[in-house]
Structures are given as C-alpha cells and as structure tokens.
C-alpha cells in the first residue's frame, strides 16, 4: 500500500482514498474548431506511456475530493512528488537524467530523493 501526500489536505493518506485519473498537464485546445483532426485526436485519445518518470493526475476521492498531480516512476512505482493543480513538477525526466545521483546505486538514489523534500511515499 502507498501512503500518499495530498497537497490540499497537507498530510499523508492511505492509497485507497485516491483514484488515478491519467496523464497530467493535458491542456484542452483553446479553439477546438481550429484544430486539425490529428491535433484533436491527439488531445482526446493519445497518451504518453514512458518507462520512468510520469506525471499523472490523481483525485483524493474519499478526502477533500480535489484533483492534484503526482510524479511517479513507472518502473519502481515510487511516487517522487505530489503537487497542486496549476503547479509544475520539480522532478522531470530531464532533471532526473542530469542528476549526478542518477549514476549512483539505487539506495543513494532513494536518499537523494527524500532529502530533496519530495512529498511522495513514506515507507
């Protein structure tokens, strides 16, 4: 079980209070009528499926019922950070790639993530 930090409730809650809602940061096209079929189709149907860092929208369904974002690792399932709607992630595939600790062992990896103040999983 995950213990997930809700940025609105400002505390960790049990995983079963949350639902995942798919890829985060999908902006609806400003003017749908001006979209090509391909642009509109991309917006409606096509999603990233990365191996590694993924930004997802989740909802705190049994708590405050607010949507928020999670940066999650799709291989380790580790939740690296959670942040409010409208905010941008501090951890991305780019920052992870340029991080010196990325070359260290996985144990060091975990420590450096936690000391960053990332508000993801606790034990």
């Amino acid at each position: 079980m995950f213990y997930i930090y809700c940025p609105y409730c400002e505390e960790h809650r049990e995983e079963e209070e949350f639902h995942p809602k798919g890829q985060a940061h999908l902006a609806r096209p400003e003017d749908p009528d001006a979209c090509s079929d391909e642009e509109w189709g991309d917006y409606l149907f096509f999603r990233n499926n990365p191996r590694g860092i993924h930004h997802e929208m989740w909802v705190h369904a049994l708590g405050c019922r607010k949507f928020f974002n999670i940066t999650r690792h799709t291989v380790t399932y580790e939740i690296l950070e959670t942040y409010k709607m409208g905010e941008q992630p501090t951890i991305t595939a780019e920052t992870e790639a340029s991080r010196p600790a990325a070359t260290a062992s996985s144990t060091d990896d975990r420590v450096s993530t936690e000391t960053k103040g990332a508000q993801g999983v606790q034990a």
């Binding site: 409730c9 049990e14 209070e17 049994l62």
Partner: peptide, 10 residues
C-alpha cells in the same frame, strides 16, 4: 475533523 474511508464507505 477529516473526511476519510469508514467501514468501506466514506
């Protein structure tokens, strides 16, 4: 006061 899971409901 919290809203949370209680007895399989909320």
């Amino acid at each position: 006061g919290v809203t949370t899971g209680f007895a399989k409901t909320s």
